[in-house]
Nucleic acid binder design. Structure first.
Lengths: 414, 414
DNA sequence: GTTTTTTGTCAAAATTCTTGACAAAGTTGG
DNA sequence: CCAACTTTGTCAAGAATTTTGACAAAAAAC
């Protein structure tokens, strides 16, 4: 049944919409797709697909690739994105790490690097670090900034998309209303797309990760902060003001510990990176044996440190992570009851934790969400590991670039 | 920017989509709308709107009404739905009440009635009561079942839309997988649309209530159960399997009281109708004075009883409701952090409670949700009072009816 | 009363899809 | 090994629906 109210389609948009649908389907189909299958998947006729594909071929956005098919009739000509059309960069600023990668137009990662980082150092310091790392990587590839068609940037806070800044971010002291996008565009002279790290993680996992092409995907990023990205019906869900997905500030325990957001009992204050580190420290003070006691004094313990210790068999680390997993499970159970996703992808530091974290999480979810929703949900770790958000940033930047190239010399209304 | 991936538009759909957009915009614009404004709002030209409107006029779905405009030029001819095209019924089965109403095609309520009810009596008893009440109302209007174009029915459980039944509903014992829609269609010989009561409440409040035409609306239905309906971008959001919005089973207190769903600490177990009644009973046993002690022994106390007592100044009732409001506020704060809606409409029994309930709720929300989301959200009681869901059911049934009439003799692909 | 403004309509042009036919390029089976 | 079959991709003609541009209609403003 027709279920969306009040949506219209001026004719000028039709070809454009179909062209983009074709382009996106080519982008997101691994191994290429034929004209015939494009037609079938998009409910168009083969005859309608041909001129659209011709247009994209002419712009050199896509290319024909030779088939290795096994069916009956004439073998299809597979279409794929022209990887060498240009380059895209993806940046993911976490609370305690920075990931930068450079990919070609087929979203294949050419180079990537993750370094330590401290978001609380503020925009001036952090953006310089981002800039340096990006230029280093470009250098190593023998490229310059002008080779980049666009740059996607993820940050761990609520985004005001039009303004290109974050609004009242709980874990980004000093960044409130700082014009991140404008500053980076001025520095680089290239289009920059700012996004929330969890949203971009959702996009990344939807496009190339564990939740490929799922209708309703939730991505949970575990780190110092805990954020959710919601991907619904082929779109990032941002809510009224772009701050949807703040699962980290869901109340888990009414009178729980104080949170950076000013409230009490938030998930983040119970199971976020800082809380995990604090619990390990408490265990150390209680005299329990853990390799984490040996960390250099000056350096702050991150959740990644704890994850690594747990992986090496450290019992204290495992215990703390299991507890955190159960708490995150409570929040995810609520999310599942509210959102009823097909799939929940848990990423960020969780991708390094494995079952120590995921098993208690899964068990809690199964216990605490309604069967109607929990029976149909898959809960898994991020296929892209710690790179979900950086890859999502790339996907978003690439969408802009492809969009503009495909649009060139074509009108569009609203 | 173009932000939805992989959506195509076969040509045959275009006119149909535009026709529906026109029809819906006429439906949902109070006082009528002119062709010129339709064109502007839908990004079409006036010349394109004319034939669409002509088509709808010819089918007698809409009519021209004479203007009382005050602008400069030629006065517009306002268009509105033809109210007398036919009739629609809306049914809302709550846990402890049943509402049935009959409306014309303009969704004007012609007659309505609310009666006591017990969903736990099971399908056989309940559907007979629904049937009786519907026939009574039809009778009073001098109508028969054959005058109804469609009937919308809301129930308090997770819906499997295709099957027309509920799946593992926590507060509908005996209804699991009972073919509700088919049973009613067989009984009435008319098309029946089954929906979740909270979803339909959201639709009702979006169409004709407190949240008219908002982009992101959440409706919270307070009763024995507590459910949320999410209305996003002109659509009910149902999630992967149609069970989105089960806020009543969000965990509020890890080791809280047992819930009917089998879990502990659910919102519903703390602030649902049963919990509220239990708290009042506890106060009575403690010897506190309340008019609710005078309720007839055999009859179960409903949340509506408590609301009425509170409105008459009963202190115990007020206290219990204030506490419930604060707990619901915790859940709504989490919902706001996750969903970032424009507006949260609180309905069901809450529409009778007023500020006793809403003030603690609002305060808790403001305290427990992030500023980025809470600054932009409006929290209000249902404008349609206890009728939100029944009216939503009407709107949905009407959509089907209008849709079919407008579609008649026109092709459609996928 | 003329000018201005806005609404609604019409015919011609434009756009983009579908229909139906067909060539191309393989596989299958006797 | 060749004919029959199957599927893909393309083409020209036709169809559907919108836009463009012009204009009549209806009321307010000057």
């Amino acid at each position: 049944m027709f279920s969306t109210y009040i949506r219209s389609i001026p004719t000028q948009n039709v070809k454009y919409i179909n062209k983009h649908a074709v382009l996106d389907l080519i982008r997101f189909t691994p191994g290429g797709i034929s004209r015939a299958e494009l037609a079938e998947r998009l409910s168009l006729t083969r005859a309608a697909v041909t001129p659209i594909v011709d247009d994209l071929l002419e712009r050199r956005l896509i290319q024909e690739t030779h088939n290795r098919s096994s069916v009956n009739g004439r073998p299809p000509i597979l279409l794929e994105i022209n990887p060498d059309y240009g380059y895209i960069a993806g940046v993911d600023m976490g609370a305690a790490h920075l990931t930068v990668l450079i990919a070609n137009f087929a979203a294949q990662v050419l180079i990537e690097r993750e370094v330590g980082f401290e978001i609380a150092d503020g925009p001036a310091v952090c953006l310089r670090q981002v800039d340096e790392l990006l230029r280093t990587l470009l250098n190593e590839l023998g490229l310059g900034l002008s080779d980049l068609a666009a740059i996607g940037v993820g940050v761990p806070g609520p985004i005001v998309a039009e303004a290109g800044m974050v609004l009242a971010p709980p874990i980004m002291p000093g960044w409130d209303r700082f014009p991140i996008r404008d500053a980076l565009e001025a520095r680089w002279g290239r289009p920059v797309l700012l996004g929330n790290d969890a949203e971009l993680g959702a996009l990344g996992e939807w496009a190339y990760g564990a939740g490929r092409m799922e209708q309703n995907l939730a991505y949970i990023k575990i780190g110092r902060g805990i954020g959710a990205g919601l991907f619904i019906d082929g779109q990032i869900y941002r809510g009224a003001t772009g701050s949807a997905g703040e699962i980290g500030h869901m109340t888990i325990r009414e009178d729980g510990p104080a949170c950076t957001c000013g409230n009490r009992g938030c998930l983040e204050a119970i199971a976020g990176g800082r809380a995990v580190a604090a619990k390990v420290m408490a265990a150390i003070r209680c005299g329990r044996r853990t390799e984490l006691a040996a960390l250099p004094e000056g350096e702050k313990m991150t959740i990644a440190d704890v994850a690594e210790a747990a992986a090496r068999g450290d019992l204290v680390a495992q215990e703390v992570l299991a507890e955190a997993g159960a708490h995150v499970g409570i929040a995810i159970a609520s999310l599942i009851n509210l959102f009823n996703p097909n799939i929940v992808v848990v990423g960020g530091a969780a991708s390094k934790m494995g079952d120590v974290f995921m098993e208690p999480l899964r068990q809690t979810v199964m216990k605490r969400s309604l069967p109607a929703a929990s029976q149909s949900v898959r809960i898994t770790t991020a296929l892209l590991g710690g790179r979900s958000s950086a890859i999502g940033a790339t996907v978003q930047a690439l969408s802009l670039a492809l969009h503009e190239i495909a649009l060139d010399r074509e009108g569009l209304r609203v």
